[in-house]
């Protein structure tokens, strides 16, 4: 079994690197958007809140694969129209944008719940102390929100990591696609798909350990 994998080991590891790139890229994209939009979910009047609610409902009910296809094929059409000449979206960008857009919806829900659990007194106290609304959010609300959201964020990271395998379907040569290629070339599908699965499991387990550590580190903050 080992002599079958050995010639492809470098390729698999390169694939793993790209997998991490896609997953990390879309997770960060989703998280940044979610942090920016999270305060909007708390305001009662803001019409944007309704838009966000609708967005979350749609994303939750539609397969990730469909979103990837939409961005991959649709992006090419939009960009071709905009630029005037044929312009193809590469699978990496399409993957990061699509999975980021999906992660954004779930992360927004996680942050919304975390935000709601912060007592109103915190906000009032910050304002009474003379902090501006912006300072209040950055220095008082944001750190508490992220800390409370940490278990949810860790979970979502694992989901994004596993969803990144779907981008292989539009041709991105990440870990999954590399295994498909190796499996086809060697006629040893079981060997390569099991190896890929083990690599994913290893990254998942490592990430879980890191998040558990971070949670423990941050817990004393909360009295």
């Amino acid at each position: 079994m080992f002599d079958v994998i050995a010639p492809y080991a470098t390729q698999l590891l390169l694939g793993l690197l790209l997998t991490l790139k896609v997953a990390l890229g879309s997770f960060v994209l989703g998280l940044v958007l979610a942090v920016l939009c999270a305060p909007l979910t708390q305001s009662r009047r803001n019409p944007l809140r309704k838009v966000l609610d609708l967005y979350v409902t749609v994303i939750r009910g539609v397969p990730e694969l469909l979103v990837i296809f939409l961005i991959f094929y649709g992006g090419t059409i939009v960009l071709t129209k905009l630029s005037g000449s044929y312009f193809e979206v590469d699978a990496l960008t399409a993957g990061i944008v699509a999975l980021g857009a999906v992660a954004f919806a779930y992360l927004l829900e996680i942050l919304r719940a975390a935000l709601q659990s912060i007592p109103a007194g915190q906000r009032e106290a910050a304002l009474v102390l003379g902090l501006s609304r912006r300072q209040m959010f950055v220095h008082v609300i944001l750190p508490q929100m992220l800390q409370r959201a940490l278990p949810g964020l860790g979970n979502q990271w694992l989901i994004v990591l596993k969803e990144s395998a779907l981008v292989s379907i539009v041709g991105l040569e990440e870990l999954m696609r590399k295994s498909v290629i190796a499996a086809g070339a060697t006629h040893h599908p079981l060997t390569f798909y099991l190896s890929a699965a083990c690599l994913y499991v290893a990254v998942s387990a490592l990430s879980s350990a890191i998040f558990a550590q971070a949670e423990q580190r941050l817990t004393p903050v909360q009295r």
Binding site: K162, L166, M176, A183, L190, Y193, A197, Y200, V201, A205
Partner: peptide, 13 residues
């Protein structure tokens, strides 16, 4: 810990 796509390929291929 692993993607469903890998699991599907393990079973099918």
């Amino acid at each position: 810990g692993s993607p469903m796509l890998v699991q599907l390929f393990i079973i099918y291929y």
